[in-house]
Design a binder for these strands. Structure first.
Lengths: 344, 344
DNA sequence: ACAAGAAAGTTAAACGTTTTTATCGTGCAT
DNA sequence: ATGCACGATAAAAACGTTTAACTTTCTTGT
């Protein structure tokens, strides 16, 4: 038995395939009664839309390309692990649609740029989701120039308005800084992502403004930019803790770098809470298992990821990008009091 | 300007589209000279094969379905993070082929079963990659019955031969057990994955045989099965450490449960190396950042993942599954001496 | 009563490819 | 010379769907 097509239904009902096609897509050109007949026949024979036919005819691909920047296989570092949850969240958001997530793993920014150009020009997908946005992101410009639907995980600063989802990094840093200052800290280190990333810039600016508000000096020695691996967290603690005026608090941009910071503490014999404290942004709720558990700003990654999926669907349906912009505020989870130890 | 098709090339060369099509796929029916003309014209006009046409005509999808079992969005646990690297490894292995990775995120085993049935019967992909195999896995039977190409990450025990890639769990446990016994340990806990998973069974059997070899008794109280989250590791340390005859070593099946075990140590005031030790299987090279770093059996996940990609390609080309079976031995990385502390 | 227009279907073409079948020379044996 | 096989190419159909253009029937306002 062959797989049933609209032709099967046409024969079954005595209608033409055109009518069947229209009926199935709820065209107003077909009467409700006729549609009912078609639907009945369709379910009876177990009809399922063959996407290949649609794709050839309409050029639609029913693919959403998810661009995933992951370090190459030689890089044995704990990095980008949040992608797993990100991807599954997106995938679930598309579950009831005909769209599928098509994965494009790239090694770096340049490659992502090339891949996106290809997807856009050869129309290998109907929509694109990217992350790791830069302040002025050429990929965004490529997609906007081609009027190609996309959503970014992360904001941009100099690009024209586009659909995005991101954590509210500015607010988060302000709250985190105010809280630490209030608890007596005067030397606060910021472990930031790579400096060309948009959210790195946002965080740094919020950090500087928070220092101003608190009347504290800005010291570049307390700022680090890099790939957010454990190694990055560790090395910066090793360096900064040797400063004559070492930081008493570290704000880590993710849980991987926070874990590395702990490793640095261990190496230097620093005790969390006594010598310094670590706060972190956490997507995976893993810092609760650190020893000791630390204070985090927790944004369950399922939230932004399902939004990304929902937004790309709406964007592909033509909704304007301005309506699809969300900043999510992470939840403060206080696991330590984080007060400056006066007898340090 | 429209995207060029074989029709464009036909006009350009004065040949028929049939000849062009055959020339492009190196059919012996077309003369080398003619083929050269076609190839030249194709590159000149910038021709790219339109997959939609092929798909409709041949039924091929050029999709490899990767089934990813991830906990639902409500589950805020660090689980399945290795999927990110697994997926990127697969994606890279397919890079030079026309195949793409199509992601299917599912919440549990039953759902993965349903999804696979659908992919197979509606031919939504040309090949499937699954993980989390069971001793007797119904999904494998489904795919085998339909003669559908697939590769599993993980072995099965009662199924007919199929293509797989896995860590050599048996060997790993034997080595790990022998090493701990040699270092004086007599009470060794095994934190194992869910008991229906094939590799859980393999590990348990290797564990029991190792005990026999060492002349040690088997105590069910030292065995735990569960989802390999940090919570799982933590809770089992909390429980087992209260036993009258508590374990002096814990073997954790992944780094997430090892991190959780550390959290349990911290809670109970246990000191690693003094009261007990933790060994783990590590895919992500993250245990080096634990405090202290622990001994692990490290298998960089890039190895199995690129093999999975390579194998599914070969399987789709018709290579017999028996030729596509690999067990990879993790590397022992000794970061502690792990000797039993006599003054415990 | 009749033209105009709407409503509901039908016909047919089209998307780009592969593949079966047909065609047409050409060389070869008879 | 004639027939035949063969090699190379062309013609045409097919995959499943959408959609522009057309036909038929029914409504409606004058």
């Amino acid at each position: 038995m062959q797989r049933p097509t609209i032709k099967t239904i046409a024969q079954e009902t005595g209608l033409s395939i055109a009518t069947v096609s229209k009926a199935l897509k709820h065209s107003p050109q077909v009467r409700p009664e006729t549609r009912a007949i078609v639907i009945e026949a369709a379910t009876r024979v177990g009809y399922e839309l063959n996407l290949h036919g649609v794709q050839l005819r309409t050029g639609k691909t029913y693919q959403v390309a998810a661009i995933m920047t992951a370090p190459g296989p030689k890089q044995n570092e704990w990095e980008g692990v949040e992608y797993a949850q990100l991807l599954s969240g997106i995938s679930w958001a598309l579950e009831d649609s005909p769209y599928r997530v098509s994965l494009y793993a790239v090694r770096n920014f340049e490659e992502s740029q090339a891949v996106i150009k290809q997807i856009v020009s050869l129309k290998k997908a109907d929509g694109i989701i990217i992350s790791g946005t830069r302040a002025d992101d050429p990929r965004i410009r490529t997609m906007q120039a081609a009027d190609f639907p996309f959503v970014t995980y992360g904001t941009s600063i100099h690009n024209a308005p586009h659909a995005y989802v991101d954590a509210d990094n500015e607010q988060m840093i302000r709250v985190a800084m105010a809280r630490l200052v209030e608890r007596g800290h005067r030397r606060i280190a910021l472990l930031n992502p790579l400096s060309d990333l948009s959210y790195g810039i946002t965080r740094l600016e919020a950090y500087r403004r928070s220092l101003e508000v608190a009347g504290l000096p800005y010291d570049p020695a307390l700022i680090a930019h890099g790939r957010l691996t454990p190694a990055f967290g560790r090395e910066n603690v090793l360096t900064m803790s040797e400063l004559s005026n070492a930081p008493t608090a570290y704000i880590c941009a993710n849980e991987a770098s926070a874990l590395g910071a702990f490793s640095g503490f261990h190496e230097r014999g620093l005790v969390h809470g006594r010598d310094a404290v670590i706060n972190a942004t956490d997507d995976l709720n893993v810092s609760q298992y650190f020893a000791p558990p630390i204070t985090t700003y927790y944004l369950p990654i399922s939230e932004p990821s399902s939004l990304l999926g929902a937004y790309i669907l709406r964007r592909m349906e033509g909704e304007p990008p301005e309506a699809l912009q969300t900043l999510l505020m992470p939840n403060l989870i206080e696991r330590c009091d984080d007060r400056l130890n006066p007898n340090r």
